Computed example of a mutant assay.
Amino acid sequence: MLKKSIATLKVIVKQLAIAFFFASLFIFLIFIFFAKKIDTTISLLNKMSVKEVNRTTEKINIDSGSKRLSSYPTYGEIFATIEIPAINVSANIVEGDNLDLIKKNIGHYAGSYFPGEGGTIVLAAHNSQAHFGKLPDLKIGSKIIIKTSYGTYTYKVTTGQIIKATDLEKDMDIKDDKETLLMYTCYPVSIYGFKDKRYVITASLEGEE
């Protein structure tokens, strides 16, 4: 009787194990399917937004009195270019800084100010050589030029520092009393990819045209 019960129990356990395996496999396949669908949808939305800016960016102006833009780029739109002659960087600036948007562009943190508004501007990019991989090579006084449809703004590097990724939000300290440019990327920059430190450049506004 005992042997029969043990044999029956083994069969049940085996069947449960098989059922669990196929259930897990099914859930995994469903997850992969929907993850790809979501990624595809986000990519398409981003592409649609970038196309839209090519038709609307020229309409953006800035009020010299209030220092506010007449309209703002939507998430995913390219609204400016950045040039850093000292490290041979020339790239587009896109509104938003998620990983998909900054694959080919410099990302503007949506919670920060825009060039010309008199507050803190935050830009993020990957540590590739084409983007912010050479930020540590910048010296005090190096020039950064941001060109928009409503003006050209030149900034001068004042500091460069390494911080923990967990301290980034605290150290950004977005203010509205002085135009300051903050740019950051993953550190060390010698190895491409996500790291637990950030290299941060601070630059002050030197002139505008």
Rank of each mutant, 00 (worst) to 15 (best):
T120I: 00
I201M: 15
T41I: 00
A7K: 13
L2I: 12
F114Y: 14
G193L: 03
G76K: 02
I93P: 11
A165Y: 13
T57I: 10
G111P: 05
N98I: 11
S64N: 13
T57A: 07
M172L: 11
C186T: 08
K67V: 02
I62P: 06
K197V: 02
I140C: 04
I106W: 11
I121P: 04
A80Q: 05
I42Y: 12
V50A: 15
K134E: 13
K139G: 14
Y150E: 05
Y199R: 04
D39E: 08
E208S: 14
T40V: 04
K175A: 01
T154W: 06
D196M: 13
K3I: 14
S70F: 00
A19C: 04
F34L: 12
L9D: 01
L69P: 05
G193N: 05
K164Y: 04
Y153H: 07
G76N: 03
S142E: 08
M1T: 10
I12T: 00
Y155V: 07
S70T: 10
I42S: 02
T56S: 13
F20N: 10
S64L: 10
I140V: 14
G76C: 05
S149C: 06
T57L: 13
V13T: 10
G119S: 08
T8F: 08
K47S: 07
N46T: 13
Y192A: 01
I174P: 02
P136W: 14
F114N: 10
K36N: 07
Y72L: 12
T56P: 01
S70K: 01
L25W: 02
V53L: 13
F20D: 12
Y155I: 00
I27Y: 12
K178G: 01
A91M: 13
T152L: 11
L99Y: 10
T81Y: 15
D100F: 09
V53G: 08
L101N: 00
K195L: 02
K170A: 09
K4N: 02
A91R: 15
E206I: 00
L16D: 13
Y199C: 07
K10E: 05
Y109N: 15
F31K: 01
L135G: 13
Y150T: 03
M48P: 01
D177W: 02
Y184E: 11
G151E: 00
F194L: 12
K104S: 07
S149M: 02
E83C: 11
S204D: 14
T159K: 09
A125M: 11
E77Y: 09
T40P: 00
A203F: 09
V189E: 04
I146K: 03
A203W: 11
A80H: 06
V13W: 05
A124T: 12
L25R: 09
S128V: 04
S71V: 04
L45R: 04
I6R: 08
L205T: 01
V200N: 03
K10I: 01
E169V: 11
V50P: 07
I201D: 12
M48V: 07
L181V: 07
F20V: 15
I191Y: 05
K14S: 14
S49M: 14
P115E: 14
F79M: 09
E52I: 05
A35P: 05
R55T: 07
Y192I: 03
D137Y: 13
I30V: 15
K14P: 02
R55F: 04
N105S: 11
G65I: 03
S71C: 06
Y150S: 05
E206T: 02
T180C: 02
Y192K: 02
K67N: 00
L101I: 07
I6H: 05
L99S: 06
I6K: 11
